[in-house]
Design a protein around this nucleic acid. Sequence first.
DNA 1: AATCTGACTTAGG
DNA 2: CCCTAAGCCAGAT
Length: 110
Amino acid sequence: MKDEANFFERVYEIARQIPEGKVTSYGAIAKALGAARSARMVGWAMNASHGREDVPAHRVVNRIGVLSGKHHFEGTNLMQQLLENEGVKVVDNQIVDFEKHFWRPEVSEQ
DNA sequence: AATCTGACTTAGG
DNA sequence: CCCTAAGCCAGAT
């Protein structure tokens, strides 16, 4: 049996820990994985997260709070809809008060 | 096996 | 924050 602790699985683990109404960045997740330089890999893992309901990729945005991955969701504004449904304001593909909704996986154990 | 690509980030201007 | 350049690494072709 293979170990399911693949790179992707690790990213999913972090993503699942993102509380509702909160968002985080790819770099933050990457750092939490111990691979701060692999922020792109986090996004890459998200690409593989399709089919995994437990992976709220819509809560993961880039460092400035822009929904860089909304284009990968169904429709054209599903990602925004999901965020607003959780109380996160999104304007022009960018999260309003991003820092206020920001959630750091590395300090999630607080 | 080599090359390209990418849901990113940081640094410098 | 905007722009350009470069680093990054794993997957896809």
